[in-house]
């Protein structure tokens, strides 16, 4: 990313929404990388006790602070609403705060939206071989894809991938009610209900020791399934 020339386009018509909870050690470098390509970075600090929000603000992000911790779904919805409040924003990208997503992938997604033939771009880690996964994680993710496709009627190759981009119009129709991780299926459901045109782009998820330690336990898939069925 540091190779980018200073004149790199800053995608002024796009907003990056980064939900953040306890990412103090990495959020600074995540914002630095994003800054090279995006002018509008909306960080939602989901009640982190470690000063993640302050660090993001020092690195130049606009930071919205949840007074309490609610979960990634709640943080995303807040970030989307904050971005929509700026009328110059035409495209919104959701980007995880732990550094596992690629800025180059995000730029490609916004470029694809700008082409105008789709309303939503989903990131998929299963469209190419770049992303390395453990067998257990692969199995759970595949099951999640199967469940999401079955309940939403869309045919996707990846679910619960936090990197996605959509137009302003789609964002106005997204209303995430699941505060926790079940929002990933919920967002697909709402996009399916809206009959929006979508495409999947291959993305590279960089699993570092940090993101692995930070990432959710596979057991959480049980909780997500329960939330989706009962609520």
């Amino acid at each position: 990313m540091s190779e980018k020339p200073a004149s790199a386009p800053l995608n002024l018509d796009a907003a990056i929404v980064v939900p953040v909870y306890r990412e103090a050690t990495v959020i600074g470098s995540v914002i630095n990388e994003l800054k090279a390509s995006f002018a509008n970075i909306f960080v939602v600090d989901d009640g982190s006790p470690d000063g993640s929000g302050d660090i993001a603000r020092q690195h130049g992000a606009r930071v919205i602070v949840h007074p309490l911790n609610f979960g990634q779904g709640a943080a995303l919805q807040t970030g989307i609403e904050a971005a929509l409040a700026d009328p110059t924003i035409k495209y919104i990208v959701t980007f995880d705060g732990d550094g596992q997503h690629s800025v180059a992938d995000s730029v490609a997604m916004v470029d694809r939206l700008r082409a105008g033939d789709v309303d939503v771009v989903f990131g998929s880690r299963f469209l190419d071989e770049r992303t390395e996964l453990t067998a257990a994680k692969r199995l759970v993710l595949r099951a999640a894809v199967g469940y999401t496709n079955m309940t939403t009627g869309l045919k996707l190759t990846d679910a619960h991938n936090g990197l996605r981009a959509f137009t302003r119009e789609v964002a106005q129709h997204i209303d995430l009610k699941h505060d926790g991780m079940a929002h990933a299926t919920e967002i697909v459901q709402q996009i399916s209900d809206g009959n929006y045109r979508f495409v999947e782009l291959p993305v590279h998820i960089l699993y570092t020791d940090y993101s692995r330690a930070k990432g959710q336990s596979l057991w959480n898939s049980i909780n997500i399934l329960f939330d989706l069925i009962v609520r």
Binding site: I64, H66, F70, A74, E81, D179
Partner: peptide, 12 residues
């Protein structure tokens, strides 16, 4: 959540 979101957005 809705209450906290309003507070966060108003503060922003």
């Amino acid at each position: 959540t809705l209450l906290a979101r309003q507070i966060a957005l108003m503060e922003d």
